[in-house]
Design a protein around this nucleic acid. Sequence first.
DNA 1: ACCGCCGGGTGCC
DNA 2: ACCGCCGGGTGCC
Length: 906
Amino acid sequence: MSWRGSVWGCLPNFYTGERNYSHNSPSEFYSSLGSEGFSIGDTSGTDEEDTDSAILYGTLRGSIVGLRYYTGVVNNNEMVALQREPNNPYDKNAVKVNNVNGDQVGHIKKELAAALAGIMDNKLAVVEGVVPYGAKNVFTMPVQMSFWGREENKEAVLDQLKMHGFKLAPPLKVELATEYGFGSKWISGKNGPTYSAPVHAAVHLTAEQLKSEFDKLFEDLKEDDKTCEMEGAEAVGTLLLPHQKQALAWMVSRENSNDLPPFWEERNNFYYNILTNFAVKERPKNVLGGILADDMGLGKTLTTIALILTNFQDGKPLPVEKITTTSCVIPEDKGFGSVLVASPTPLKRKTKRKGTASIQSAEKKYSEDNPRTTLIICPLSVLSNWIDQFEQHTSQDFHLNVYIYYGSDRNKDPAILSDQDVVLTTYNILATDYGVSKYDSPLHKIKWLRIVLDEGHTIRNPNAQQTKAVLSLEAHRRWVLTGTPIQNSVKDLWSLISFLKLKPFTDREWWHRTIQRPVTMGTPGGLRRLQSLIKSITLRRTKTSKVKGKPILELPERKVLIQHVTLTEEERQVYQSVKKEGKAAINRFFSEGTVLAHYADILGVLLRLRQLCCHPHLCTNTSSSFSAGNNTPEELRQMLVTKMKLVLSSGSDEECAVCLESLTLPVITHCAHVFCKPCIYEVIRSEQPNASCPLCRNELRVEHLVECPLEEELDSSNGKKDDQEWISSSKINALMHALIELRKENPTTKCLVVSQFTTFLSLIENPLKKSGFAFTRLDGSMAQKKRVEAIQCFQSSQAGSPTIMLLSLKAGGVGLNLTAASRVFLMDPAWNPAAEDQCFDRCHRLGQKYNVIITKFIVKDSVEENMLKIQNKKRELAAGAFATKKPSASEIKQTKINEIKALIDL
DNA sequence: ACCGCCGGGTGCC
DNA sequence: ACCGCCGGGTGCC
């Protein structure tokens, strides 16, 4: 059985190269020193990227002075933050001391500050403080400091301190117990033995142990208060499943609750944070929201829509309005599958709700303090899914304004936006507005009723512009939807927790000191702490979870069959001659050592072979000449870039060598390699000022990158070649045979016929027509309206409705629902098995009534068979460990080279 | 007395 | 700060 349901998603998000922080903000400081998630037992240590785990150098007692002048107060044993203040007019070495709330307590005494300044500025160590006693002093108070840093900086730090006459004491003083999470048990042994601190950050757990530890995080989440059910309001036009009613009850109770946030306790009229020992008089606010982390396919979107309609205002549902206007305005001219963010296609919409006295009076209930609008932010790929689902699940009698804030003509008037019930937008639009001007960004001018982050893990990189844009939005209620809350390590959680505005974790330092480090260092209780945090704000069910003893989803079986296809003599001849030529060229590249320089050539060869396995007419537009001969290097380069574009425009689902997944927003480098735009930008950012290509180490510059729209964004209709007479192919014959057999068996069975190559789909149309099949088609080039039509048409159970859908592999987002089909014919294998799985899930999901049979057509003795082998290797890799070591640039290269060899039988 | 000592003024960095 | 430190006032016993 194929692996899908793991909590930890598939491959980790790889970064190449070390980050280089040049700013002074404490949060960046922390991120630069934070340990790299869980390090797995293998610590060969040769990898320079693996060294940013911090160890404790030792501790030092100092004093905080100038308390008179500041308002920040602390308690005994409370954590404090030390922050450099290089612009202090009295002392350029000044070090501020702040309490957990960020209020200044005082300064570090100047002699000590002089010693710390250099250490802190050069990021040799992170210095953390706890006030052990004397917190009520008037003028000065003591501070116990811990110095954390990389092993290799330890000497330098000790030297610096020595120069100023300071010496570190051995780690772990009793006063610091709370830092380590030992609690009172530790302190109680007054004259007991002394313990030495854990010095090394490495946790000696196997990958399996770690995974099971992580899985425990989400255990028991289904119990106690999370099993109540709640019916959706009348406005929810769809019956909710039991587990969705549970989620709704939980979400509504979270939004209306007045509980204290996790780790806070009330003690004699004060509220204490038991992690930092910080106290406040005002009751800290809990997040009115949380993380809905259900597995894919359990209906997070529907549940969220139900929440919006059911807990609309003051705990009451959306009122009935006797007005009937179109609820959603769907863009007519262009689909959402497009990911061209730089030049968004204008979407048509109407501005509604002008006039009508009754509505105006209704609007008066809403104001700055009492907003009405929910903002939903999602990746572009699922935007259309949200629109569909709003349409599907809102009852006819109710009217919900949904405004799609997308496209170059989006309405930026905050007054209009805050007058909607729902504003839907994408992370990219949000980040673009914010990038233009933080202050003019319309979405940042509004205080929202509720913000929903869909696929919330997209903001897991705290330094990404879109994360910053998301974190600076204002809202009363906040939700994160994600199927994979932790992709790679605990680090991934910070952005989400910070978005939820859970104090004190919004500040990176407190998150790091109280949760991340205890967890990564394996401090007793660290994981328990994280678990208790997650438990209090998260609801997660997997596909195998049960409600009242019954499985949440009873999905029918899914079988994958491989149907071998033998080429005809004629096809085989063409194939062999192209292969021979290609193999000779690739052999030459190997002997010249220019394999990676000719990457585009090689992809071109492989593409032609893959196309020939499908149909001889597919590769007529791809030139077979190799870039060599009498061309200048510049001409050669141009040819390679052109070739790469041609490969990409064929529809081939190529992958990015950095993230190892299907390309998103492909860009071609100067050296004719292709990567995801975000991946390569990350490489450039981390290797500045001089970055080099992960595949060939050539110079890498932003201004040389060429964006390359995928085939999906191109109009395929004008790519049809009418001048060629239609002929069949072995694969088409195999498909038609299967389809006709199937029709004999059961004429109502519906099928998906999937290919990466839309021209192949076009070629298949011909025999379908001849054999009298009713079919429809869905590919990336279709306008949104046509897609909706095609999907509705196909999903219909009416007699005479199409039984076949021609589907391009990557069409539509994860939400695309094609459950009417119970058979899938995959005409050509993809590099990335995950892309195939995602495609199969379009019919093998909630709502599927029959067992699903998937047939993969694979040509015998061809590149396709070799692709299957590579796919299997990738599956093993993805299932094996969730935190595989980051491959270095040279490993990326070697993997690619091995793949090429395997593919062309070298 | 280019000292010591006294006692008032004063106080982060 | 019930300290230290500074700098002015002062000066045998």
